[in-house]
Design a protein around this nucleic acid. Structure first.
Length: 136
DNA sequence: GCCAACGTTGGC
DNA sequence: GCCAACGTTGGC
């Protein structure tokens, strides 16, 4: 059974459309111990929400892990890792941070408790709640 | 653009 | 090994 995650990116740097255009993306430049540990725990096929931070502030699509972690040569490869991801599909409609905050089922969502965490786990219950909010 | 949160660095 | 200073992230 796949695990669920959420990853953030600023859309003006690397947004959903950039990932779709590329076909497969390398999630690099994550220099945070917690986020990095989460990436190390990812297995091929795990499902990931793509969240637009700073601008947009919404979950826009679903991607999946296409290749498990390897050293991040763009930073310090001794220390940090990348994963590769592929777009699965865009959500029927984006789910905004505002809406997430208003849903009591999502009160414990990791990114609400720790807004600066850029790679965070999502429970199955939370995953389904967000999908439901997207009208799926 | 501002600032709070929080992780990291470096002087002691 | 502590903690103040600094840098980065991300919501507002």
């Amino acid at each position: 059974m796949p695990q669920y995650w959420l990853m953030k990116s600023e859309p003006d740097v690397y947004g959903w459309d950039d990932l779709v255009a590329e076909g497969e993306g390398t999630w690099d430049g994550v220099k945070n111990a917690q986020a990095s540990n989460n990436m190390k725990a990812m297995k091929k096929g795990d499902q990931i929400f793509f969240y637009h931070s700073r601008q947009g502030l919404d979950v826009v699509g679903i991607m999946e892990v296409s290749e498990e972690h390897s050293p991040d040569v763009t930073t310090d490869p001794e220390r940090w890792v990348v994963v590769k991801v592929k777009p699965v599909r865009k959500l029927a409609k984006p789910v905004s941070l505002k809406a997430i905050k208003q849903n009591p089922e999502l009160a414990d969502l990791a990114i609400l408790r720790q807004s600066r965490l850029s790679v965070a786990p999502v429970t199955e219950k939370e995953w389904l709640a967000i999908l439901a909010m997207a009208g799926e």
